[in-house]
Amino acid sequence: MIFPGATVRVTNVDDTYYRFEGLVQRVSDGKAAVLFENGNWDKLVTFRLSELEAVK
Rank of each mutant, 00 (worst) to 15 (best):
W41V: 12
R19A: 11
E37G: 11
F3P: 04
V45Q: 05
L35D: 03
R26W: 15
F36P: 00
T46A: 06
V34L: 03
L52C: 03
P4S: 05
N12M: 06
E37H: 14
V8A: 03
T7L: 14
G30M: 05
A6G: 06
S28Q: 11
L44E: 13
N12E: 04
V10S: 02
D42R: 15
L35C: 10
L44G: 03
V27T: 04
G5S: 03
M1N: 12
G30F: 05
E51K: 02
L35N: 04
L44M: 08
L23Q: 09
L52E: 01
V45T: 04
Y18W: 06
G22K: 00
K31S: 10
V45A: 05
A54I: 15
G5A: 02
T7N: 06
V27E: 02
F20G: 04
Y17D: 02
V24K: 00
D14S: 11
F47Q: 03
F20A: 09
L49S: 04
Y18F: 09
K31I: 12
A32E: 00
T7S: 07
G22R: 00
E53L: 06
E21A: 06
L23E: 08
P4M: 06
E51W: 06
F36H: 00
V10K: 00
S28E: 12
E37W: 11
G5D: 02
K43S: 11
R9C: 07
A54E: 09
D15Q: 08
L44D: 04
T46G: 04
A6D: 13
D14I: 08
R9L: 06
E53S: 06
L52Y: 01
I2P: 03
V55A: 05
E53F: 05
V45E: 07
V55W: 04
F36L: 10
D29A: 09
K31N: 09
E21K: 08
V34E: 00
F47Y: 14
S50E: 14
V55E: 03
N38R: 12
W41K: 10
N38W: 13
E21F: 08
T11N: 07
N12S: 08
V10W: 01
S28I: 11
N40T: 12
A32S: 02
V13T: 09
R48A: 14
R26Y: 14
T46F: 13
R19L: 14
A54R: 08
P4V: 13
A54V: 15
V34C: 03
L49T: 08
G22A: 03
A32Q: 01
K56A: 13
E21W: 07
A6L: 09
K43A: 13
V34Q: 01
T46V: 13
P4W: 05
N40Y: 10
D14F: 12
Y17K: 03
T7K: 14
D15W: 04
L23K: 13
A33M: 13
P4F: 05
L44H: 05
L49E: 07
G5H: 03
Q25W: 11
D15T: 11
Y18K: 02
V8E: 00
Q25T: 13
F47D: 03
F20P: 01
T11A: 06
I2N: 01
D29I: 05
G39F: 08
W41L: 10
V13E: 10
L23G: 02
R48D: 15
L35I: 07
E53V: 10
E53T: 08
V34N: 01
S50T: 10
T16P: 15
K56T: 14
L49D: 05
V24F: 01
N12P: 04
Y18M: 02
V13I: 10
D15C: 13
T7W: 15
A6C: 13
T16Y: 14
A33E: 15
V8Q: 00
G5E: 02
T7D: 02
N40E: 12
R48I: 10
F36V: 04
V8G: 00
E21D: 04
V45C: 09
F47G: 02
R9K: 07
G39R: 07
G39A: 10
R9Y: 05
N38M: 14
R26C: 15
Y18C: 03
R19G: 15
T7F: 11
Q25L: 15
A6I: 12
S50I: 08
F47V: 06
N40I: 11
V45Y: 05
T11F: 04
L52S: 00
V8F: 00
E21N: 05
E53N: 04
D29S: 08
K43Y: 10
E51S: 07
G39S: 09
V24T: 02
V8S: 00
A33I: 14
D42I: 15
K31P: 01
G5R: 02
E37Y: 11
P4Q: 07
T11H: 04
L49F: 09
N40K: 11
S28C: 14
T16N: 09
K31R: 11
N12C: 06
V13N: 06
E53I: 09
T7V: 12
S28M: 12
T46M: 12
V55F: 06
V55R: 04
I2R: 01
N40P: 12
R19Q: 14
E51R: 02
T16L: 13
D14K: 12
K43W: 12
N12R: 09
M1V: 10
G5N: 03
E21Y: 09
E21G: 02
V34H: 01
A6K: 05
F3E: 09
V13G: 06
T11K: 10
D14M: 11
E51F: 06
W41Q: 11
K43R: 11
W41C: 15
F3C: 12
L23T: 14
Y17V: 01
E53H: 05
V13W: 06
F3R: 11
Y18E: 01
T11D: 03
W41G: 13
L44Q: 06
V8R: 00
R48S: 13
Q25D: 05
L52M: 02
T46I: 14
E51T: 03
F20M: 14
R9S: 04
V8D: 01
E53A: 07
K43C: 14
N38I: 14
V24E: 00
E51M: 05
Y17P: 01
Y18D: 02
V55G: 03
E21S: 07
K43F: 13
V27S: 02
G5W: 03
D14A: 11
N12D: 06
D15R: 07
M1I: 09
N12I: 06
V27Q: 02
A54N: 09
G39H: 09
A33Q: 14
L49N: 04
E37T: 14
A33N: 08
L52V: 05
K43Q: 11
M1H: 12
D15G: 05
A33D: 15
V8C: 02
E51L: 04
Y17N: 04
G5M: 03
G30A: 04
Y18Q: 02
V10A: 02
T16V: 14
L35Y: 10
V10M: 02
I2C: 05
N40R: 10
L52N: 00
A6N: 07
Y18H: 05
F20L: 11
V10I: 07
T11P: 02
T7C: 13
G30W: 04
D14L: 13
P4L: 06
N12K: 13
T46L: 12
Q25M: 15
R48Q: 14
W41N: 10
R19E: 09
D42G: 14
I2F: 07
E21T: 12
S28W: 15
V24W: 01
T7I: 13
F36Q: 00
A54F: 13
R48H: 14
A32N: 00
F47P: 03
Q25F: 10
T46S: 09
V55Y: 05
G30L: 05
R26L: 11
A32L: 02
G22D: 01
V24G: 00
S28H: 13
N38P: 08
K56S: 13
E37M: 13
R19W: 09
I2Y: 04
E37V: 14
V24I: 04
F36K: 00
I2E: 01
V13L: 07
N40D: 12
G5F: 04
D15K: 05
N12W: 04
Y17W: 13
K56L: 13
F47H: 03
K43M: 13
S50F: 08
F3A: 10
